[in-house]
Design a binder for these strands. Structure first.
Lengths: 249, 249
DNA sequence: AACATATTTGCAATATTTTGCAAATTAATT
DNA sequence: AATTAATTTGCAAAATATTGCAAATATGTT
C-alpha cells in the first residue's frame, strides 16, 4: 500500500461521508493509526480537508449551520439514499431538490453512473463537482441564504426549460389528507414546478416529517409516485399512503 | 524487453489501476526495481503520471484543484482586492466573474455594503452566503467542473437579463495588441457577454498574466476601463496599457 | 566486420523516508 | 481533580531512493 493510494482513499471517504475516523481507516487499510494521522496531516496541509481530533472532516465551503444539519441522523439518510439508487439509470435527467436527504443521495451516486442532474442546491452541486460522469445543470436565480438554494421566478423559469425523467424530492411535511406542504411560499411554488416537469417522483422523508403539515401547499400526496423513508414500509404510520396507491419503500 | 515496451505496460497498468508498485512490475517484467523506477521517472517527466515513493499513480482525474489554487499567492490577491473596494458603491449591480482574484474581492466586501452581486461562480456565491446585506443572483447553467462555475448558453442567457453597473472581471491572459484571451471557447463567449452588459469593467490580473495570450479571443484591451494588478502601476510592463488609455492601478 | 561510443541495466553502498511503537504530553469528559 | 482518549515526540527498524560504477547492449562509423 503506497501512501498516495491511502491519501486518495481518505479523500474519497471524506468527500462521501464528510468525515473519517482514524480507527476506521487504520483497520480498513491495515496500517497504524499513527500513519493515518500523518496522512491526514499531509492532506490538511494542502487544505484538502480539516484534521480534527480522532480523524478528519471535509473542508467544504458550506458553512457550519448547514453542516450541522448534514451530520444529523446520518444513518437514516444513508438508508434512504441506498434505497433510491435502484431507481437511477444511465441516461436519465434527474432533478435533485434541496435538503440533506437528497444531498445524501447525491453523495452516494456510484462513480460510473451517467445521468444529468438538474438542481438548485449548492450542496448538491458541490457534492457532484468531483463526480467523473455526472453532468450537472444548475438552476440559477436569487440566492436563498440559509438553505443554500436558489429560489424565485428565475429559478422556476430555469426548471421550466427541463423535462425530467425523475425528481428526487425532499419533503418538508406530508400528510395523507392535507397533502405536501412547506414553510416558505416561494419554496412551495418552486417545488410545485419540480413536480410538474418530472415524469416520476421519489419523495424522501425521515419519519419525523410524516403526518405533519406546514402553511404553504404544494400538492396532494398522490403526486408522489414513491415515498422512501428510513422506517419499515409496513409501519402503521404509513398505512394511509399505501391506501392512496403510493409506493412505499 | 525494450524500454518502450515497458513504458507502455506501465502506462496501461496505471490507467487501469490508477497506480503501480515497483515491486509488482519488477517481478512481472523481470527487470530490477531500479529500471522500473527509471522508467517511471521518464514518464513522470512527460507528465504522463506522477512518481511517488514505491511506484506511481495516475494523474488524478480531478484537476488539482480549486481549493488548492485558492491558497496560491494570497498576498497578491489581497492587494488587488483592497484596490477594488473603492469602486463599489451601495445600490450597484455588480457582476463577479469566476477566478481566485475575484473571489478574494468577494471575501473582503465590507459588512455594510449593499450591492447586488450577479455571478456564475460557486465559490463567490459561497463566500457571500453569510454576508448580511449583499443580495446574490446566481446565473445557472451547465456546471464547468474544473473551475466550479457555470457555463454555456443558459448562463449567457441569464446574464443577458441583467444590466450591470460594474463588472469585476478575472483575466486569463491579456496582451496590448492581441487583446484579452482565454483557454476555453465557451468561457470566452461568456466573458464577452459579461463585458457587453456592464457599464464599467474592472479587470483583475496578477502580473504573470500580463502580456500573454491564449487561443480564444474575448475582445480588445480597450474594453477594459481599469486594470488592477499586484504590481506598481508605473511598471514598464504596463506602459502599453497606459497608452491605450486604460486606467491602471 | 571491427571498432569506438553512447545508452541501458543491475548491483552495491549510502542516504532518506516511512512506519509502528512507547513514553510523555495535551485535551476532553465526568 | 481524576479518568479516559487522543496527540505529540523521539526512536529504531523497515522500506525505498540515490548515486556511482561496471557489465551488457545498442548505435554509429569507418
Amino acid at each position: 500500500m503506497v501512501r498516495e493510494e491511502r491519501l486518495q482513499i481518505i479523500l474519497d471517504h471524506v468527500s462521501k461521508d464528510n468525515r473519517v475516523l482514524l480507527t476506521e481507516l487504520s483497520e480498513k487499510l491495515n496500517v497504524s493509526e499513527d500513519t493515518i494521522r500523518r496522512d491526514i496531516k499531509v492532506l490538511a496541509d494542502q487544505k484538502l480537508l480539516t484534521a480534527v481530533r480522532g480523524g478528519a472532516v471535509a473542508h467544504s465551503p458550506i458553512p457550519h449551520h448547514y453542516r450541522a444539519r448534514e451530520q444529523h441522523d446520518v444513518a437514516s439518510k444513508k438508508v434512504i439514499a441506498s434505497k433510491v439508487l435502484s431507481f437511477l439509470k444511465d441516461g436519465q435527467v434527474v432533478i435533485f431538490d434541496g435538503g440533506t436527504s437528497t444531498l445524501a443521495v447525491a453523495q452516494s451516486l456510484p462513480d460510473d453512473l451517467r445521468i444529468t442532474v438538474v438542481t438548485n442546491s449548492f450542496p448538491v452541486a458541490n457534492a457532484l463537482e468531483d463526480h467523473p460522469t455526472v453532468e450537472v445543470i444548475f438552476a440559477g436565480g436569487r440566492l436563498f441564504k440559509s438553505s443554500f438554494t436558489t429560489i424565485g421566478h428565475e429559478t422556476i423559469a430555469a426548471f421550466r426549460n427541463i423535462r425530467a425523467d425523475l425528481c428526487i424530492f425532499g419533503i418538508c411535511s406530508v400528510h395523507p389528507t392535507i397533502g405536501i406542504t412547506t414553510r416558505d411560499y416561494e419554496e412551495a411554488e418552486l417545488k410545485k414546478t419540480m413536480l410538474e416537469i418530472s415524469k416520476e417522483t421519489i419523495a424522501l422523508s425521515t419519519h419525523e416529517k410524516i403526518n405533519t403539515a406546514d402553511p404553504y401547499y404544494i400538492g396532494p400526496v398522490t403526486q408522489l409516485g414513491t415515498i422512501i423513508t428510513d422506517i419499515c414500509p409496513h409501519n402503521e404510520q404509513l398505512a394511509a399512503y399505501h391506501e392512496a396507491g403510493i409506493n412505499i419503500l
